[in-house]
Simulated scan of single mutants.
Amino acid sequence: MLKAVIGHSSAWSARAIIMPNLVPPVVTTSQAQAYKDQIEAALPSGDDFTPLMTLYLTEQTDIDDLQAGADSGLIQAVKLYPAGATTNSESGVSSFEKIMPILEHMAKINLPLLVHGEVTDADIDIFDREAVFIERVLDPIRKRIPELRVVMEHVTTSDGIDYVSAGGDNIAATITTHHLIINRNAYLAGGIRPHYYCLPVAKRESHRLALRAAATSGNPKFFLGTDSAPHFDGAKETACGCAGIYTSINTLNCLAHVFEDDGALDQMEAFTSLNGPAFYRLKPNDKKLKFTKQDAPIAFPKQIPVQNDHITVFDPGFPLFWSHEAINGGEI
């Protein structure tokens, strides 16, 4: 799977935050190094791509190991998955009190916490999980450890947008390509469409519009996090299909359409390339991409063959006309 998809990211992205929810999860620095080595070995020849590694937070995370990983420059952040919240999150956190010493140490060494912002309580409606997470988990953590830097990954609601916007300098949020484009009708109206099912689930249209407004606003608190998830069709088209949407191959083409549609093409560079590095305190990349609007729609494969199965590519539901190519220096 890695060899089949890595080139779709490295073709346009010089680096990416690598999520640790593998089976088994990436919970130690040595496991992160091994995963980084695998990614680099799978890269197409000539592609310049830096994996920015993260650790999967558990109630048993070793602070000394975490410190060593951060000191080496390998570990850029730690990801918090509430147990059972998303794909391969069974090893996630159940007791937030138990991880407080780890979070306090992360704040001390200025290591960001990335959160999958949903509670998993059975009595909470799936469409309310993000808002309840903010109220019950995230806000108490941040009040207790205000110096902790936090990224709400793949925010999906106006509640999340409002919370991050008002939250001061130590909180930011990523927004996915697909959550800018689809609402919950995409996977529920007219039949179940498993290739539009992801976690967090897409919400009602008012939330999608709030995400669009935040992404295209130029607000440095919001930046791209594709959350692109390759799953075999056989694992999605089943009685209990897995969550995830695969967008790596056409993310920038989709985003150019969205930003043009909202009259904000001048804000796209900040969202995709500047705001994220600024929050992570990394220098922006030197290389640039040139975008061109084509006269005819760009063709993308509907599926990518892998072994004896396929990965279905995200279909935005409209034709894409913006292409991009790498250039070396100069103005665009």
Rank of each mutant, 00 (worst) to 15 (best):
P200K: 08
P200S: 03
P200G: 02
V201W: 11
A202P: 01
K203G: 02
K203D: 03
R204E: 13
R204M: 08
E205R: 07
E205W: 06
E205F: 08
S206L: 10
S206H: 13
S206I: 14
A210D: 06
L211W: 01
R212K: 10
R212S: 05
R212L: 12
R212I: 15
R212W: 05
R212Y: 04
A213F: 09
A213G: 10
A214H: 02
A214K: 03
A214S: 05
A215D: 00
A215M: 02
S217R: 01
S217K: 03
G218Q: 05
N219F: 02
P220K: 12
P220N: 13
P220E: 13
K221A: 12
F222E: 01
F222T: 02
F223W: 06
F223A: 04
L224H: 10
L224C: 07
L224G: 08
G225K: 06
T226Q: 07
T226L: 12
D227H: 11
D227G: 07
D227N: 11
D227P: 05
A229L: 06
F232N: 10
F232W: 14
A235P: 01
K236Y: 08
K236F: 04
K236M: 04
K236N: 07
E237N: 12
T238P: 02
T238H: 09
A239K: 14
A239T: 14
A239R: 14
C240T: 14
C240N: 15
G241Y: 12
C242R: 03
C242G: 02
